[in-house]
Design a protein around this nucleic acid. Structure first.
Lengths: 149, 149
DNA sequence: AGCTTTTTGTCCAGGTCGTCCAGCATTTTA
DNA sequence: TAAAATGCTGGACGACCTGGACAAAAAGCT
């Protein structure tokens, strides 16, 4: 499992993944080779899936986001899933229990694009679309230490 | 807007945000001070929101994820939103058009925890919960270059 | 077009940072 | 209790980053 030092490192990296080893080292009270080794192990174990960058979709022209619930028609599940995966505007897709088989996030530049993209699966699935008006919580990792539930 | 070099830099950083300036520089054919300057500008402009790290929720003990649709009772919208924001297990929350006011992602350690967390808002909102069975597409940024729609 | 201003780039030098390695302490296994 | 394995440190060396002076290109103005 993860010890306190690992959690402290993750906590710093969540806020800035470009923090130098030296900086990390002094913040957790280790030498930089130790920190380097710990990061390597966290990556090897799959705890750290990737060091990445969060980009503002607006800066890329994606002014609209939608949550799309997708219910494939009988026998079309696999075709629909493949279709979704191949459309790069889908920024996230979960397969869930219940009537709606998939819940996905769609980035688009305009309502027109939204319509065109949904048309591609319209003959293979029923969809319900909700436009995102605001984001009270933007993507964030689960708590590092056990919260009181 | 973003030129080709910016996009190339972002593309590399999406895959590994700890890539050194030197490495970035030779991949895009600039000097490292130039790359450093470009990154600074991208951050200033808000194109880059954060350099961060993607963590496997399982490694933190969160073995279960759910998509929760939340419909606050009349007059309770603001209290509900505040409540959601204060619960750290919500890893994402969007305010959307339609009957469901919020669509949120919940990280939990067990079905028991899921029940306890939803109980906290049960008297202020109606909720429908779908357990995530698989993730065909994990969170990814929108395409950097215009796709043909 | 010709000039000025602004933006974006390079090069270089000094200082910082990361990695490798040997050695030590602590814990685990036999 | 000894042996092995793990995880740490410090220092040396090489790689990397930063800041400043200057050059080139792009944009704006007359």
């Amino acid at each position: 499992m993860l010890d306190d030092l690992d959690k402290k490192l993750l906590d710093i990296l969540i806020r800035d993944s470009r923090t130098s080893l030296k900086e990390l080292a002094q913040q957790v009270g280790l030498s930089s080779p130790s920190v380097s080794e710990r990061l390597r192990r966290l990556e090897d174990r799959g705890v750290i899936r990737a060091f990445t960058v969060e980009i503002d979709p607006q800066a890329l022209g994606y002014t609209l986001q939608a949550i799309v619930r997708i219910r494939p028609l009988p026998g079309k599940l696999h075709i629909v899933q493949k279709l979704i995966e191949e459309i790069p505007e889908f920024g996230e897709c979960d397969k869930v229990t219940g009537d709606d088989c998939f819940v996905a996030r769609l980035f688009v530049r305009s309502i027109g694009d939204l319509d065109k993209l949904l048309d591609r699966i319209a003959d293979k699935a029923e969809t319900s679309t909700a436009i995102i008006k605001a984001q009270p919580i933007r993507r964030r990792p689960p708590p590092l230490d056990m919260p009181n539930i």
